[in-house]
Design a binder for these strands. Structure first.
Length: 241
DNA sequence: AAAAACATCAACCGCCGGGTC
DNA sequence: AGACCCGGCGGTTGATGTTTT
Protein backbone atom coordinates (compact mmCIF):
# COMPACT_ATOMS: atom_id res chain seq x y z
CA UNK A 1 0.00 0.00 0.00
CA UNK A 2 2.85 2.25 -0.78
CA UNK A 3 3.21 4.58 -3.69
CA UNK A 4 5.96 3.71 -6.09
CA UNK A 5 8.82 6.13 -6.11
CA UNK A 6 8.94 8.66 -8.93
CA UNK A 7 10.97 11.75 -9.73
CA UNK A 8 9.36 15.09 -10.50
CA UNK A 9 10.55 17.75 -12.95
CA UNK A 10 12.86 19.25 -10.34
CA UNK A 11 14.57 15.95 -9.78
CA UNK A 12 12.91 15.48 -6.41
CA UNK A 13 11.72 12.05 -5.40
CA UNK A 14 8.07 11.41 -4.76
CA UNK A 15 6.24 8.47 -3.33
CA UNK A 16 7.21 5.92 -0.76
CA UNK A 17 10.11 6.55 1.57
CA UNK A 18 12.78 3.90 1.96
CA UNK A 19 14.79 2.97 5.02
CA UNK A 20 17.84 4.94 3.95
CA UNK A 21 15.83 8.13 3.55
CA UNK A 22 14.14 7.59 6.90
CA UNK A 23 17.51 7.11 8.52
CA UNK A 24 18.92 10.26 6.96
CA UNK A 25 15.96 12.35 7.99
CA UNK A 26 15.92 10.95 11.50
CA UNK A 27 19.64 11.40 11.95
CA UNK A 28 19.59 14.95 10.65
CA UNK A 29 16.72 16.08 12.87
CA UNK A 30 18.29 14.30 15.78
CA UNK A 31 21.48 16.27 15.29
CA UNK A 32 20.22 19.66 14.21
CA UNK A 33 16.46 19.88 14.65
CA UNK A 34 14.29 20.52 11.65
CA UNK A 35 14.69 24.30 11.48
CA UNK A 36 13.72 25.35 7.98
CA UNK A 37 11.90 22.48 6.28
CA UNK A 38 12.60 23.80 2.80
CA UNK A 39 16.34 23.81 3.39
CA UNK A 40 16.42 20.62 5.40
CA UNK A 41 16.49 18.09 2.54
CA UNK A 42 19.45 19.85 0.97
CA UNK A 43 21.52 19.63 4.15
CA UNK A 44 20.26 16.19 5.06
CA UNK A 45 21.21 14.79 1.66
CA UNK A 46 17.67 13.98 0.64
CA UNK A 47 16.15 14.39 -2.82
CA UNK A 48 12.80 15.33 -1.37
CA UNK A 49 10.85 18.52 -0.99
CA UNK A 50 10.63 20.04 2.46
CA UNK A 51 6.96 19.35 2.73
CA UNK A 52 7.49 15.68 2.10
CA UNK A 53 10.17 15.57 4.81
CA UNK A 54 7.92 17.35 7.25
CA UNK A 55 5.05 15.00 6.56
CA UNK A 56 7.21 11.94 6.92
CA UNK A 57 8.60 13.19 10.21
CA UNK A 58 5.32 14.34 11.67
CA UNK A 59 3.33 11.26 10.72
CA UNK A 60 5.84 8.42 11.04
CA UNK A 61 9.30 9.16 12.31
CA UNK A 62 8.53 11.43 15.21
CA UNK A 63 8.88 9.63 18.53
CA UNK A 64 5.69 8.56 20.20
CA UNK A 65 3.56 8.23 17.10
CA UNK A 66 1.12 5.35 17.44
CA UNK A 67 -0.10 3.33 14.50
CA UNK A 68 -3.07 1.09 13.93
CA UNK A 69 -5.41 -0.58 16.38
CA UNK A 70 -7.58 2.29 17.48
CA UNK A 71 -9.22 1.40 20.76
CA UNK A 72 -12.96 1.68 21.23
CA UNK A 73 -12.36 4.64 23.52
CA UNK A 74 -10.36 6.38 20.83
CA UNK A 75 -13.07 5.66 18.27
CA UNK A 76 -15.73 7.06 20.55
CA UNK A 77 -13.64 10.12 21.27
CA UNK A 78 -13.03 10.79 17.58
CA UNK A 79 -16.72 10.49 16.81
CA UNK A 80 -17.63 12.80 19.66
CA UNK A 81 -15.01 15.39 18.79
CA UNK A 82 -15.97 15.26 15.14
CA UNK A 83 -19.54 16.02 16.08
CA UNK A 84 -18.33 19.02 18.07
CA UNK A 85 -15.54 20.30 15.83
CA UNK A 86 -16.21 18.97 12.34
CA UNK A 87 -13.21 18.16 10.15
CA UNK A 88 -10.72 19.85 12.44
CA UNK A 89 -8.41 16.86 12.36
CA UNK A 90 -5.42 18.58 13.86
CA UNK A 91 -7.52 19.81 16.78
CA UNK A 92 -8.99 16.37 17.24
CA UNK A 93 -5.50 14.88 17.13
CA UNK A 94 -4.39 17.02 20.07
CA UNK A 95 -6.88 15.07 22.18
CA UNK A 96 -5.55 11.67 21.12
CA UNK A 97 -2.04 11.18 22.43
CA UNK A 98 0.30 9.78 19.81
CA UNK A 99 -2.19 9.94 16.97
CA UNK A 100 -1.65 12.16 13.96
CA UNK A 101 -4.26 14.20 12.15
CA UNK A 102 -3.61 12.22 8.98
CA UNK A 103 -4.20 8.89 10.63
CA UNK A 104 -7.32 10.09 12.42
CA UNK A 105 -8.63 11.47 9.18
CA UNK A 106 -7.98 8.17 7.40
CA UNK A 107 -9.51 6.21 10.23
CA UNK A 108 -12.58 8.41 10.17
CA UNK A 109 -13.15 7.97 6.46
CA UNK A 110 -12.51 4.23 6.45
CA UNK A 111 -14.07 3.12 9.72
CA UNK A 112 -16.00 5.73 11.61
CA UNK A 113 -17.90 7.85 9.15
CA UNK A 114 -20.98 5.67 9.10
CA UNK A 115 -20.83 5.06 12.82
CA UNK A 116 -20.52 8.77 13.36
CA UNK A 117 -23.67 9.48 11.44
CA UNK A 118 -25.59 6.92 13.45
CA UNK A 119 -24.17 8.29 16.67
CA UNK A 120 -25.06 11.83 15.68
CA UNK A 121 -28.65 10.82 15.07
CA UNK A 122 -28.92 9.07 18.42
CA UNK A 123 -27.26 12.00 20.19
CA UNK A 124 -29.86 14.40 18.90
CA UNK A 125 -32.47 12.07 20.22
CA UNK A 126 -30.74 11.78 23.57
CA UNK A 127 -30.32 15.53 23.98
CA UNK A 128 -34.00 16.03 23.46
CA UNK A 129 -34.73 13.55 26.21
CA UNK A 130 -32.16 14.64 28.78
CA UNK A 131 -31.16 17.84 30.51
CA UNK A 132 -28.08 16.36 32.18
CA UNK A 133 -24.63 17.90 31.82
CA UNK A 134 -23.55 17.39 28.22
CA UNK A 135 -20.75 14.91 27.89
CA UNK A 136 -18.99 17.34 25.59
CA UNK A 137 -18.20 19.49 28.61
CA UNK A 138 -16.02 16.75 30.05
CA UNK A 139 -12.40 16.90 28.93
CA UNK A 140 -11.87 14.31 26.23
CA UNK A 141 -8.49 13.40 27.67
CA UNK A 142 -10.05 12.86 31.06
CA UNK A 143 -12.54 10.51 29.50
CA UNK A 144 -9.80 8.62 27.72
CA UNK A 145 -7.91 8.35 30.96
CA UNK A 146 -11.01 7.11 32.73
CA UNK A 147 -11.54 4.50 30.06
CA UNK A 148 -7.92 3.44 30.36
CA UNK A 149 -8.26 3.02 34.06
CA UNK A 150 -11.41 0.99 33.59
CA UNK A 151 -9.72 -1.25 31.04
CA UNK A 152 -6.35 -1.24 32.76
CA UNK A 153 -4.88 -0.16 29.41
CA UNK A 154 -3.01 3.12 29.74
CA UNK A 155 -3.12 5.34 26.68
CA UNK A 156 0.64 5.62 26.67
CA UNK A 157 2.70 4.93 23.60
CA UNK A 158 2.86 1.20 24.03
CA UNK A 159 3.27 0.40 20.39
CA UNK A 160 3.90 -3.21 19.64
CA UNK A 161 1.48 -4.10 16.90
CA UNK A 162 3.55 -3.15 13.89
CA UNK A 163 6.94 -4.40 14.85
CA UNK A 164 8.97 -5.71 11.93
CA UNK A 165 9.58 -9.41 11.70
CA UNK A 166 12.64 -9.10 9.61
CA UNK A 167 15.41 -6.68 8.80
CA UNK A 168 14.74 -7.41 5.17
CA UNK A 169 11.11 -6.41 5.37
CA UNK A 170 10.16 -4.36 2.34
CA UNK A 171 7.57 -2.48 4.33
CA UNK A 172 9.75 0.31 5.57
CA UNK A 173 6.79 2.37 6.54
CA UNK A 174 5.70 -0.09 9.15
CA UNK A 175 9.31 -0.64 10.06
CA UNK A 176 9.81 2.96 10.97
CA UNK A 177 6.39 3.07 12.54
CA UNK A 178 7.61 0.33 14.82
CA UNK A 179 9.90 2.64 16.76
CA UNK A 180 8.70 1.24 19.97
CA UNK A 181 9.51 0.01 23.38
CA UNK A 182 7.97 -2.44 25.76
CA UNK A 183 5.19 -1.40 28.09
CA UNK A 184 7.33 -1.52 31.19
CA UNK A 185 9.88 0.81 29.65
CA UNK A 186 7.25 3.22 28.47
CA UNK A 187 5.97 3.57 31.99
CA UNK A 188 9.46 4.30 33.22
CA UNK A 189 9.79 7.00 30.62
CA UNK A 190 6.47 8.50 31.56
CA UNK A 191 7.91 8.90 35.02
CA UNK A 192 10.72 10.92 33.52
CA UNK A 193 8.25 13.22 31.84
CA UNK A 194 6.17 13.63 34.93
CA UNK A 195 9.27 14.58 36.87
CA UNK A 196 10.26 17.05 34.22
CA UNK A 197 7.01 18.88 34.81
CA UNK A 198 6.00 18.66 31.17
CA UNK A 199 2.71 17.23 30.15
CA UNK A 200 4.11 15.51 27.13
CA UNK A 201 1.02 13.66 26.01
CA UNK A 202 -1.46 16.46 26.41
CA UNK A 203 0.89 18.78 24.53
CA UNK A 204 2.06 16.02 22.29
CA UNK A 205 4.53 17.53 19.90
CA UNK A 206 5.98 20.62 21.41
CA UNK A 207 9.31 18.87 21.36
CA UNK A 208 9.71 19.05 17.63
CA UNK A 209 12.16 21.87 17.88
CA UNK A 210 13.99 20.60 20.89
CA UNK A 211 16.59 18.78 18.88
CA UNK A 212 19.01 21.61 18.60
CA UNK A 213 22.21 20.83 20.37
CA UNK A 214 21.72 23.47 23.04
CA UNK A 215 18.69 21.73 24.37
CA UNK A 216 19.74 18.19 23.77
CA UNK A 217 19.59 17.21 27.39
CA UNK A 218 15.85 17.83 27.53
CA UNK A 219 13.66 14.98 28.58
CA UNK A 220 12.28 14.82 25.10
CA UNK A 221 15.69 14.21 23.66
CA UNK A 222 16.27 11.59 26.31
CA UNK A 223 13.08 9.88 25.26
CA UNK A 224 14.07 10.11 21.63
CA UNK A 225 17.52 8.73 22.29
CA UNK A 226 16.02 5.87 24.17
CA UNK A 227 13.74 5.03 21.29
CA UNK A 228 16.53 5.06 18.75
CA UNK A 229 18.83 3.01 20.89
CA UNK A 230 16.15 0.49 21.62
CA UNK A 231 15.23 0.28 17.99
CA UNK A 232 18.84 -0.17 16.95
CA UNK A 233 19.20 -2.87 19.55
CA UNK A 234 16.16 -4.73 18.26
CA UNK A 235 17.48 -4.51 14.72
CA UNK A 236 20.80 -5.94 15.82
CA UNK A 237 19.08 -8.83 17.52
CA UNK A 238 16.82 -9.72 14.63
CA UNK A 239 17.89 -12.81 12.73
CA UNK A 240 18.88 -12.32 9.12
CA UNK A 241 16.42 -14.11 6.83
C1' DA B 1 -7.94 -19.80 -10.16
C1' DA B 2 -8.82 -15.47 -12.03
C1' DA B 3 -11.04 -11.19 -12.31
C1' DA B 4 -13.55 -7.58 -10.30
C1' DA B 5 -14.85 -4.87 -6.57
C1' DC B 6 -13.87 -2.95 -2.39
C1' DA B 7 -10.91 -1.33 1.58
C1' DT B 8 -6.89 0.73 3.40
C1' DC B 9 -3.66 4.30 4.23
C1' DA B 10 0.79 6.72 2.89
C1' DA B 11 1.64 10.52 0.44
C1' DC B 12 0.62 14.49 -2.52
C1' DC B 13 -1.71 18.85 -3.65
C1' DG B 14 -3.52 23.27 -3.08
C1' DC B 15 -4.94 26.65 -0.07
C1' DC B 16 -4.67 29.60 3.99
C1' DG B 17 -2.84 32.33 7.84
C1' DG B 18 0.98 34.35 10.15
C1' DG B 19 5.40 36.41 10.00
C1' DT B 20 8.91 39.15 7.78
C1' DC B 21 10.87 42.50 4.81
C1' DA C 1 0.48 48.18 2.11
C1' DG C 2 1.59 44.29 -0.23
C1' DA C 3 4.67 40.77 -1.85
C1' DC C 4 6.89 36.84 -0.46
C1' DC C 5 8.06 32.81 2.36
C1' DC C 6 6.99 29.15 5.29
C1' DG C 7 4.48 25.91 8.12
C1' DG C 8 0.36 23.72 8.71
C1' DC C 9 -4.15 21.97 7.47
C1' DG C 10 -7.77 19.40 5.07
C1' DG C 11 -9.12 17.14 0.82
C1' DT C 12 -7.87 13.89 -2.39
C1' DT C 13 -5.29 10.44 -4.95
C1' DG C 14 -3.52 6.10 -6.12
C1' DA C 15 -0.91 1.76 -5.17
C1' DT C 16 -1.57 -2.26 -2.94
C1' DG C 17 -3.92 -5.63 0.01
C1' DT C 18 -8.20 -8.18 0.81
C1' DT C 19 -12.62 -9.96 -0.14
C1' DT C 20 -16.17 -11.29 -3.16
C1' DT C 21 -17.96 -13.10 -7.36
Amino acid sequence: MVRTTAVDKNGLKKGAWNQEEDDKLRAYIRAYGHGNWRELPKFAGLSRCGKSCRLRWVNYLRPGVKHGNFSKEEDDLIIQLHQELGNKWSTIATNLPGRTDNEIKNHWHTHLKRRGKQSQASNVQAKEQSSETPESLISPCKKLEAADVANNTPSLPIILESFPLSKESSDHSSLSAGVSFVAEDSLTLMGIFEESGEDFWTQPFVGDNTYDQDDYTSSFALYYDYNLDFFDQVLQELPDN
